[in-house]
Design a protein around this nucleic acid. Structure first.
Lengths: 203, 203
DNA sequence: TCATCAATCAATCATTTGATTGAGAAAATG
DNA sequence: CATTTTCTCAATCAAATGATTGATTGATGA
């Protein structure tokens, strides 16, 4: 079923409220952590009653799932923002780095909340179902890039694509933490040196 | 002599109790996450009353700090278990990898709890004071190794030691997660290829 | 033997917290 | 307008939870 195409807009729609709730929840997860997340705080930040919150999101469990889904949606939207067809492997890798820079700049809480939910996925199958495919997608993007780069000779030939992809995503995620934020650019530069072959004098 | 009569509830010294409490708390943090950690559960696992728990550890905050300190102690003990003097840089790097393998094998919860507390350090200065120096120590070990390896010519000469250390520690920590555990060896192998120079055909 | 103190527990407290109820307001519908 | 549906809130509940109290137990030393 597609979303209703040319229907008349409702009043303050439930969808908008749910988006506002997810946004507030994400901010609060960053501020207080998953263990400090309270439905009352979310309602207050959105500016609604706790009962209204429960009208739109039936339970706290569903709320965390909503947050997970919102992360996935934002992440996919970001991944589709930049075309990667026709680029060589090195350019694709740099494009991925740029996308990460944009995420850190424009949705600074995304990686942090994602990191908390990846932990949560260990013990919550509902969340795992949303988060793990998303993580697999991100790692998979790098894996494909590494395969391409090995094939066209621009990357170090003895790379293990899957292992390298884990290293890259783990390093980038780590640089999201405040006390590591300043290291993002040096880390990206080091990752390039680690996997790209030095360019000889090319035109 | 110290044989233990099994059926008699033995009274333990304060230090022993605190160690048992920290151990139980670590296990429960892995099972339920920091957000699912309950003082009652800890007391039950240790086999003591909730009031006794509060006698030994005054508050939940202090309890988490106790866990952080126990992580630090275990981590330092492990770091001192293997001598690294006199080894060349490559051997030191492999020694660090071996220590990590031992931690994963012998204290499988250490890295996971550490990861949760690193997150917590973002918002809790008391925990940050314990955890961040510990993290800095670990990263610093790798930084020193990379400097040594660059100097003696066994590592890729254009390594940024600090950035490379972040990459290594982030990648290892990431491999602690259950769905990444199988990737530990490939990731370690890839890290070696990324930073060590090929040894045989060099010349 | 007895006084002292660390260690322990049953019972309970005071909040916090996720969730519900029932009533009502504000659109949408006819 | 009347009716229905959607959305909202004040009040409240029941359970969970961190913490405390007051009494008890066992070890130690004088």
């Amino acid at each position: 079923m597609c979303p209703e195409p040319a229907h008349i807009p409702k009043r303050e729609s439930g969808d908008e409220r749910r988006i506002a709730i997810a946004r507030a929840a994400r901010a609060l997860i960053i501020e207080k952590g998953l263990e400090g997340l309270r439905t009352r705080d979310i309602a207050e930040r959105v500016g609604i009653n706790i009962a209204t919150l429960h009208y739109h999101v039936p339970s706290k469990e569903a709320l965390v799932a909503l947050v997970a889904a919102s992360l996935r949606d934002d992440f996919k939207a970001q991944a589709l923002r930049h075309p990667k067809e026709g680029l060589d492997a090195g350019a694709q890798l740099r494009q991925e780095f740029n996308e990460f820079r944009e995420i850190v700049a424009e949705m600074p809480e995304l990686i942090g909340v994602l990191s908390e939910l990846v932990d949560l996925s260990r013990r919550d199958p509902t969340i795992a179902e949303i988060i793990l495919p998303m993580q697999a997608f991100w790692t998979g993007q790098f894996t494909k890039i590494f395969r391409t780069g090995i094939d066209d000779g621009s990357f170090r030939p003895n790379i293990d694509p899957a292992a390298a992809a884990i290293i890259v995503t783990a390093a980038l995620s780590d640089c999201w933490r405040p006390h590591r934020r300043a290291s993002l650019e040096p880390v990206i530069a080091e990752l390039e040196r680690a996997f790209l072959l030095p360019v000889s004098n090319q035109g």
